[in-house]
């Protein structure tokens, strides 16, 4: 069976004063129906831009380069006209964003905004859209949903607004949900509730989820697969259990070493030395080599391809070839 979403060699460029920037530079992955894929990386690695590209929402003057391919159920998303594109946005792929405080329009009520999304894809009356909005608010676990219908966004808490965003994204029963750092702006306790909610909805609807995050902590035990992104590329990809058991790329190892653990002896966190390079001037060879504790001489000159390191486990690192991973 073909995967629901396939991304092949996605490249996005931005013209800048200091030459062309390549924030996403050859990313390929796929998401199966009902699967939860986590796309993990530091800020600036290109993960959010990748998620925006899936709906063709790369902000101008950014451009998706020819040769890139995005296929939803076999349909070439990059070749669609405006109306066909609209039938994917929200209808087949829903999206929620990092900051629920700014993602809702301040001058419309909750019922207005959910109802608008319902009516953008289905021919129903305003009354029916309102009824559907109520159903959705119930589904995302908002207390007193009837009262919340006519409330404005500023009258709700961040967690409640993110639930509303999810309700809006679910309005047209999409096959896939993109969640771009959905809990970053929220309190820790609220984070857990939102993640629980997403888990539950995915199970109930058999919806695929692409979870974009910088936090490996929320990935464990939740994602089916993890793809680690660094400097505009995927550097490692594996099933979640496999990745946590045998992290292979030095960058992934570094990320895991910098996550605080609640169990076990208290140890110092090990940060990764240096910072992410600028997308206008990626380092030659392997992009991680200037920061890599295990770099080989050839890493400075030769760019490693994606190499297998195990069952459905691949990484872009010469260590895979040397068998030292």
């Amino acid at each position: 069976m073909t995967p629901l979403l396939e991304v092949e060699d996605l490249r996005i460029t931005f013209p800048t004063r200091h030459g062309t920037s390549h924030p996403v530079d050859g990313v390929s992955f796929s998401v199966a129906r009902g699967e939860l894929l986590a796309l993990v990386g530091e800020s600036g690695c290109g993960k959010s831009l990748t998620s925006l590209a899936l709906l063709r929402l790369v902000p101008p003057p950014g451009q998706i380069q020819p040769g890139s391919a995005i296929r939803l159920d076999g349909t070439d998303v990059l070749g669609l006209g405006p109306e066909e594109l609209r039938s994917i946005r929200g209808r087949r792929i829903g999206m929620i964003f990092q900051d629920p405080m700014t993602s809702l329009n301040p001058v419309f009520t909750i019922a207005d905004q959910i109802g608008e999304s319902v009516r953008a894809h289905q021919k129903v009356s305003k009354r029916a859209a309102r009824a559907r909005a109520l159903e959705l608010l119930q589904e995302v676990g908002i207390p007193d949903p009837t009262q919340r219908l006519d409330v404005y966004p500023h009258q709700m808490s961040g967690g409640m607004r993110q639930r509303v965003m999810i309700a809006i994204a679910l309005a047209s029963e999409p096959e896939m949900l993109i969640a771009d750092e959905p809990t970053t702006a929220l309190d820790v306790t609220v984070q857990a509730q939102i993640l629980e909610l997403l888990d539950g909805l995915r199970a109930a609807r058999g919806m695929a989820v692409l979870l974009i995050t910088h936090d490996l902590g929320i990935v464990a035990g939740r994602a089916d697969r993890v793809a680690v992104m660094y400097a505009g590329r995927l550097v490692e990809e594996a099933a979640t259990a496999e990745l946590f058991a045998r992290p292979s790329h030095p960058y992934t190892k570094g990320l895991l070493a910098s996550v605080p653990r609640i169990t076990g002896a208290v140890t110092r966190l090990t940060p990764i030395a240096g910072t992410v390079p600028a997308p206008t001037a990626w380092p030659a060879g392997c992009r991680f080599h200037p920061r890599c504790p295990a770099a080989l001489p050839r890493c400075a000159t030769d760019d490693p391809p994606a190499l297998p390191v195990g069952n459905a486990h691949r990484m872009r690192c010469w260590l895979a070839e040397a068998g030292r991973a």
């Binding site: 609209r86 994917i88 209808r91 829903g94 999206m95 993602s103």
Partner: peptide
């Protein structure tokens, strides 16, 4: 952006 993303 959110409005565009939901196909308005």
């Amino acid at each position: 952006l959110a409005a565009r993303a939901r196909g308005i």
